[in-house]
Amino acid sequence: MDTANQEDPRVLRTRQLIREAFRDLLRYKGFNAITIKDIAQRATINRATFYAHYEDKYALLEKITEQAFQELIPEQVVKAQEFTDEICTELILLTHNYIVDFYQVCRMDSKSIDTLVHEKVKKMLQQMIESIILNGDNQRMADRNHTKVISAMTGSAIYSAAYYWFISGEKDRTDLLVDTVRSYVMNGLRL
């Protein structure tokens, strides 16, 4: 698995076919009902080829979650040297947009899959926030664990609020979401 040349155009094309097939299947078929055979048939590959690229459908879901989320990250967030109101706003909006897009595409029929996606996105948020805080800290923050805890809490707060906003049906009022969450997060970071 993953032993093939990562830059080979054929490898990249095969992975793209697998991801597209999986996304197509998620639109009308629940995750639990999707088999590797379904994915392989839709991608016009054999099962062995699937397994040469991904361990199982859980690994595929995790990779798709990661790639889709990373595609939404604006350059200003990637290059941020400080966790500002603007960066916080960007993270809130991209998290909310990701959640809306994800649940419009996927039929989530499994709590374990729901949890996997939640945890993956929260972890990516935590890593981004931690990186921003460490980039802006000229003193090389002595207590890296403190930074990790703050980043985990901040990422969880942003994700949880965006998810709640989505499930409560407030998809269109992102201005209220941003105002509420940004105030909470930024005040918490100033303590």
Rank of each mutant, 00 (worst) to 15 (best):
L25M: 05
L26R: 05
L72Q: 06
K123I: 07
C106T: 13
A48M: 06
Y163I: 00
A4L: 15
A162L: 04
N135S: 08
A48N: 12
Q70C: 05
C88N: 03
D38T: 00
I129Y: 15
E20D: 11
E62Y: 09
W165H: 15
S160D: 11
Y103P: 05
K63V: 04
K171C: 04
F102P: 01
G155E: 00
L191R: 11
K111M: 12
R19C: 03
K79H: 08
T147H: 08
N46F: 06
K63P: 00
L125G: 07
I92F: 05
D24R: 14
T35F: 12
A40W: 03
E7P: 08
T89L: 01
N46G: 03
T65N: 06
D109E: 07
A48P: 04
K29S: 06
G30Y: 00
N46V: 02
D179S: 06
K123C: 07
F50L: 01
S168H: 14
L17M: 07
I64W: 08
Y98H: 02
Q127V: 09
R13V: 03
R140A: 12
T154V: 00
M1H: 13
G169Y: 08
E71F: 00
V100I: 14
D137K: 06
F31T: 06
Q81W: 11
N5F: 11
G136I: 01
Q67G: 06
V78L: 13
F22D: 06
V117M: 08
K148N: 14
M128W: 09
H53D: 07
Y164A: 02
T89I: 05
I129C: 08
D137C: 06
T84V: 10
H118G: 13
K111V: 15
D109T: 12
S110P: 05
V11L: 14
R19G: 01
F166G: 02
Q139R: 11
I129H: 14
S160G: 01
T154A: 03
R144I: 15
H146F: 15
F22E: 07
Q126P: 08
L116N: 00
Q139I: 04
I34F: 05
A80M: 02
D172E: 15
D101L: 01
T44Y: 13
I133P: 04
T115L: 13
D56F: 02
T89W: 03
M141P: 04
D2N: 10
I73V: 14
K123N: 09
R47D: 00
R10A: 10
R140K: 12
I34A: 11
F102K: 10
E7L: 14
D2F: 13
Q81F: 13
A43W: 06
L60Q: 12
R19L: 08
Y103G: 10
Q81E: 09
C88Q: 00
I167C: 00
I113A: 14
F166L: 01
A68N: 13
I129L: 14
N135K: 10
K63L: 06
F50Y: 11
L72D: 06
K29R: 09
R19S: 04
A80S: 09
D101A: 03
N135T: 07
H118E: 09
I36A: 12
A48W: 10
L61Y: 01
M1L: 02
I113M: 15
G136D: 05
K63A: 08
P74D: 10
D109M: 07
T3A: 14
N135H: 08
L191F: 14
L72W: 05
M124E: 12
I39Y: 07
Y51Q: 04
L25P: 02
K29V: 09
T44K: 09
D38G: 03
R190Y: 07
P74M: 03
D24W: 12
R190D: 11
